[in-house]
Nucleic acid binder design. Structure first.
Lengths: 239, 239
DNA sequence: CGGTACGTTGAATCCGATCAAAGCGTGTGG
DNA sequence: CCACACGCTTTGATCGGATTCAACGTACCG
């Protein structure tokens, strides 16, 4: 958090709130809220397993305990868009309709808390604390989704990947190896690019000495300043 | 609403919930909620006037009574992204942080209800009904923001403009003249395109007889089926 | 009526997509 | 345990849609 701020000057207003203290608190608070916890069951998802499917009746919301989940949507002609990568503490399955807004799949073995939707709604309607916590959690997702608009609409391939990597900076100590469990295709579909462009851009960053690649799924962010410089004024993606 | 559905088969799951009955109800209900109305004042904004500025302390939320508002963000190098166009009944100014997440400007003379943020928060914390209504309103914004991800990440210029136009289909009777108060630059920045590409794509649609242009700011949607066909499986933008 | 901001159209350019093929690694079955 | 096979990644060559640069047209407002 602190290390992130020092690399992104003068653009605090566009930093997604997943990085903002108030939201971290809200996340933690949701996790601890007893009224919500009481209706939860624990489930496990193997790597590649589908947790819920776009358009199906939204029977439950989920909170990730451990692992990593990909949420995506696919057009009839096969074009795919990865809406988000979710990590421990993140929620998904909220919708204002009664259908899931995206398909969620585990990309690593994942443990989740499952909150039946009807009961969750009931708790929220009755319990002021729970309602307000949900309200803030959705607000966080909203801000993140909005931040991605600028990235997809106006940033170059290099800027997008830089923003993506910087979004993970808070997850690993400076210079530590950063695991990227998703494939290049996932990253491409997340950033609105092709596999090849993602791969080429990784290669460029490595050639410049900004990152080190250990295999295809572990990255070391060597020069955060340069990466941040690329996405300066831009949107680091919380992840 | 009904006319829209019949043009977009088999993709109900990705239709933004601004079009879904439940959300329309929620919108209306928010409008009528007395606890929220009591803390509101009415303000007027002239064409081009800034209502709130990205990054400023979020002192209030606004609900549009009449007119049209553009919400945008601008990078330090001048690249702009139009986050949304807002119409009567729409809210903006919600943030999970204490700063506005985007600059709101009136693109027509606009009348708004202004809800001081502290009081709004106070009402929400205290009043279950208000909290739940806000929760759903934010959820609607969330879904809309997400729907735009697919558009920006994966649709072609023609598909984007078609989706944009279809988003307005519900606003005018079939074959009726549709006013587009925003400029080509606004549309371009909304769809992640340039002015020129927007203009050229309008011209293409007109050449094909899909639309009629009356001046630059009034469109008649002649062949909704073709337009919908272009964005089939895609995301009609609620507006 | 004149100026200015907005819109259209044309030509050239470029970034990322597409097509193609060659590494790499991992996991499984022989 | 090794070998093979399949899926993922990288790299190369070419293509194409959207951008950029440029000029002209148009409409609205003072």
């Amino acid at each position: 958090m602190a290390t992130l701020q020092q690399h992104i000057p003068a653009v605090r207003s566009v930093i997604p709130m997943a990085f903002q203290p108030s939201m971290l608190e809200a996340r933690r608070a949701v996790a601890k809220d007893t009224a919500l916890d009481r209706i939860a069951t624990t489930i496990h998802a193997a790597r590649g397993e589908t947790i819920c499917h776009d358009g199906d009746e939204a029977e439950a919301c989920f909170r990730i305990e451990s692992g990593c989940v990909r949420v995506s949507k696919t057009l009839s002609d096969g074009r795919r868009h990865v809406v988000d990568f979710l990590y421990p503490g993140d929620f998904f399955g909220f919708t204002a309709t009664d259908e899931y807004d995206g398909t969620a799949e585990a990309i690593t073995p994942t443990v989740l808390k499952r909150h039946p939707r009807l009961q969750l709604e009931a708790v929220a309607e009755r319990d002021l604390g729970a309602c307000n916590l949900l309200r803030r959690a959705i607000g966080a997702g909203f801000a993140k989704a909005r931040a991605r608009g600028m990235l997809l609409a106006r940033l170059s391939a290099e800027e997008r990947l830089a923003a993506f990597l910087i979004g993970f900076a808070g997850r690993s100590e400076n210079g530590r190896l950063l695991p990227l469990p998703m494939t290049r295709a996932d990253i491409g579909d997340y950033l609105g690019l092709t596999i090849e462009t993602v791969s080429r851009t990784f290669t460029k960053f490595r050639a410049r000495g900004w990152i080190k690649l250990v295999g295809a799924h572990d990255v070391q962010l060597v020069d955060l300043d340069r990466l941040a410089g690329l996405s300066e004024g831009a949107v680091p993606l919380a992840a």
